[in-house]
Amino acid sequence: MNSRLSAITLNTFREAVRDRVLYNLILFVLLLVASAPLFSQISIGLEKLMLVNVGLSSISLFGVIIAIFIGIGLVSKEIEKKTLYTILSRPVRRWEFIAGKYLGLLLTLVVNAVLMTAGFYAALLIFIHSLAGTDARMLIAVYFIVLQFMMMVAITLLFSAFSSPIFSATFAFALFVIGTFGEDLKNFAAMSHGATKYLVTGAAYILPNFASLNVISQVAHEQNVSGQLVLFNTIYALLYSVAVTVGAILIFERRDLK
């Protein structure tokens, strides 16, 4: 990685950490602890099911919220506060700026997810008193959550590259919600005919699909995740993120920053 890219990446990470974004970790742990009495009301088998569902879902949701809230300001804040002026007057290529911002926010989210996962496993140990060998399967769910972050960061960055934070937040969140029901869109496409079919199929390909990235309830029910799905999801998330980030770069490349 070239030194300018790594400098921008690390500075983006540093900004997030100093803005106390990772404080939500404390909230996460508190949430798990507070919900513990709830779990013990339910029978032993269900207790774990609940904990896995709540734990993994919050890792995903917290991350997406951070991705949107930091992501929307990544570029627009630097333009508004004119800090970008002192960056672009250096040998920094515009694509390096966007790519550095992308990697910096992704790094923040990965660190966040790793810490949360550690907290989650600790909670499992405390409340269930044991970790089964099959619990490693939950790491696949976490991996998919990180893939989802990759896509969400790219999406918010794309909006941030050309519009205001409020617009970006609204649209990024809308895409997140749509993407969560991505499978329904595909089913709808399969059922429809004629022009509608082409339109909906096209939309299903352009819009993000987070449905196949969500295996939380599967692993909570101790079901296996196929290696094929892992491979498919990895390729899908990579391609989607790269395509969207390239879009963000192309927009940013020719933009007057005033």
């Binding site: 500075n11 540093r14 900004e15 100093r18 803005d19 506060k81 004119k82 800090t83 002026y85 002192t86 007057s89 250096r90 040998p91 920094v92």
Partner: peptide, 16 residues
């Protein structure tokens, strides 16, 4: 750009 330096008007820097 390695050989030039720039001070913008009313500069603001990363305050963290």
């Amino acid at each position: 750009k390695r050989k030039i330096g720039f001070l913008p008007e009313q500069p603001y820097f990363y305050d963290y």
